[in-house]
């Protein structure tokens, strides 16, 4: 009796799994020609942006940065669409951005425009749309950071506003590894720096950067 019940139970599980996938594949088969993806605009949307980024060594980060600072994250301002009016539009390239306010403690290169600076990252949430961009790091208020910063030369830049962007995107943020609080160095995904020695390294890295081979001129019409 028990054996028969177990067999019946097992067979029912198999029928359930088989039935689920049969229904799923039938949906695909009934689609003709080029499939049209479904979009549910009334529901919360998550736009996930992933991509390949230009690899940057520490030498390149130093050479390409206008400002390098050691500081502490104060707050994250409300996110907004990159459109000049802060709203979404379909006729222009448009991304969700968030300004991270960082209090500057020490400056290693350049001169920041204020003691509290804004660092603009391409991620955040506006209304029911969440923009997740893996090329940009996350920030937490109170976090100690060394940031490699430059002027924004992206197509969504707003020159009349005061802010920086990260040189090399997520490669431009160095922070403590939360799993190893005893480690005094700050890390990005590939390298580590010691804030107490960075000032001495800058000049050497600047010289090394001058000797690096330069990229070709962008053609555009690929």
């Amino acid at each position: 009796m028990k054996k028969a019940t177990a067999i019946l139970f097992g067979a029912s599980i198999c029928i359930g799994v088989f039935g689920y996938y049969s229904m799923s594949s039938n949906t695909a088969i009934t689609t003709t020609s080029a499939p049209v993806p479904e979009v549910q605009t009334s529901q919360p949307n998550t736009i996930v942006v992933k991509g390949v980024i230009a690899a940057k060594s520490k030498t390149e980060l130093v050479g390409e940065s206008d400002v390098i600072i050691h500081g502490k994250v104060k707050e994250l301002l409300p996110s907004a669409w990159s459109n000049p009016n802060g709203e979404r539009g379909q006729d222009v390239r448009n991304v969700i951005q968030t300004d991270v306010v960082v209090h500057v403690g020490k400056t290693f290169k350049g001169e920041p425009y204020a003691k509290d600076i804004a660092v603009r990252i391409e991620k955040g949430k506006v209304g029911n749309t969440t923009w997740v961009s893996e090329g940009y790091p996350d920030f937490t208020p109170g976090e100690e950071v060394v940031l490699f910063l430059c002027q924004d030369h992206r197509d969504v830049a707003v020159p009349q506003e005061s802010y920086y962007v990260l040189t090399g995107m997520l490669q431009g943020k160095f922070a403590h590894d939360p799993k190893h609080p005893e480690d005094k160095q700050l890390h990005n995904e590939k390298e580590a720096i010691d804030p107490t020695q960075l000032a001495d390294e800058i000049a050497t890295e600047e010289e090394a950067y001058k000797k690096l081979p330069k990229p070709a001129k962008p053609q555009g019409n690929i």
């Binding site: 979009v39 942006v49 992933k50 991509g51 980024i53 230009a54 090329g135 030369h153 992206r154 990260l166």
Partner: peptide
Amino acid sequence: GTPNYLMITSTL
């Protein structure tokens, strides 16, 4: 523009 992705994929 720069600094930015070389190429990106935006998925819905």
